[in-house]
Design a protein around this nucleic acid. Structure first.
Lengths: 218, 218
DNA sequence: TAGATTGTTAATCGATTAACAATC
DNA sequence: TAGATTGTTAATCGATTAACAATC
């Protein structure tokens, strides 16, 4: 697909560029230079140009970047130019919170089903999305061509359900469980470890570098 | 506080060490070498030793590391050896999901209050935690000595409420809003941008490096 | 003591920043 | 054309890995 291998660090910055460009677009800004953007985002202009040039020359000398065009291109790079079928496994508070989050669908991530082990939830629905039992997973994944599964259940459950997901064709796992999932090649995992994020906050709170005023990028 | 400045990359790895050590502790493992741990965690032994030696010599030549001791020490480094008072601003699905998550309290993060702008939520409670109105924030923060605030509300609201939090003594912000918060020195921000995480997943799904079997660390 | 494994220095690798020629 | 700003190469900085002497 791509020529060289793109570094993880670059990929992590792309969604942030995308967010800022979206804001600029909303504000009807037509063009922007790497320098202006760098000031807004608190990064170097050099980094912006380097990052973008991993994917091609989106700018124009003497002009800068066309906001609309760059926004669209980064969207394509991120795979936001087409739709995905997604399920959420674990219909607890977090799973339901994700299911209620309509913004994902605006970006092409369609939540087709919610799954849980708890039989008391069977038949209930969140925002019109029915809660089904884990046993129904294999058939549902295949029939609905599910590519992405969000795992919002305890670590042990996440580990148990992962091979079932993979066997039935899920290609991407958004993992909220407190464990590192093992998946075969051809399947990707992105983890959100909330408690680890809170611990980082706690570390920084206790080891507050008496640093100059800063923007909380992370 | 600390001698040298600890790099962000190291701090990000600490909670993961902590998790693995906790698991080992539960499994009644007494000692572990950097090499054994490196195999479990899919990192180099060298990195483990380097990381730990940023904070002091926790091991013993010829023996390795005592699991219990190392776990406790990393806990201290992360600031998990004392308690924090926390509030959640934004009592929507995500805010309520966090409020329901008891594990945080086991680690010393006590959720003292939930806040929202929606008057219909006034007086309601989640797991015994009362939902209050945003107007009550200043007094509540001061009276309850709140150090940490989780922001689970839209970007504009998060930006509005941040100065209020800071003025009244909040020192750490756990930001779930889709914006980069600006805070004065002495206040730390840790952001969880869910939609950006999903975009990274989407990127990786579309640019699947045909890489060898891997552990989904991230 | 001999064997194992850390703590730490040195070497390598990768990512960020600076600089500037190309070009709109 | 002159001015601005990119694309890209080169220089710097930082983080990871390798190696090994210190030591339990």
């Amino acid at each position: 697909m791509e020529e060289r291998e793109i570094s993880k660090a670059v990929v992590k910055r792309l969604p942030r560029y995308y967010r800022y460009l979206g804001n600029l677009l909303d504000a009807r800004v037509e063009r922007i230079s790497s320098n202006e953007l760098s000031e807004m985002m608190n990064v170097t202009a050099s980094q912006i140009r380097q990052d973008l040039n991993n994917f091609g020359g989106f700018g124009q000398q003497g002009y800068g970047y066309n906001v609309k065009y760059l926004y669209t291109e980064i969207g394509k790079i991120l795979g936001l130019d087409h739709a995905y079928n997604m399920i959420i496994v674990g219909a607890g508070n977090l799973g339901q919170a994700l299911a209620n989050y309509v913004k994902f669908e605006k970006r092409g991530f369609w939540i087709k089903g919610l799954f849980d082990v708890n039989p008391r939830l069977r038949g209930m629905a969140v925002r019109g999305i029915e809660i089904r039992m884990i046993e129904e997973l294999p058939q549902f994944i295949r029939e609905n061509q599910i590519q992405i599964a969000a795992l919002t259940l305890p670590a042990s459950g996440a580990e148990e359900v992962t091979p079932i997901l993979v066997e039935n064709g899920v290609k991407a796992i958004w993992n909220f469980a407190h464990t590192d999932l093992h998946v075969p090649s051809g399947v990707v995992v992105e983890s959100v470890h909330l408690s680890e994020s809170l611990m980082q906050l706690s570390y920084n709170l206790n080891h507050m570098e008496l640093e100059k005023e800063k923007t909380g990028q992370r």
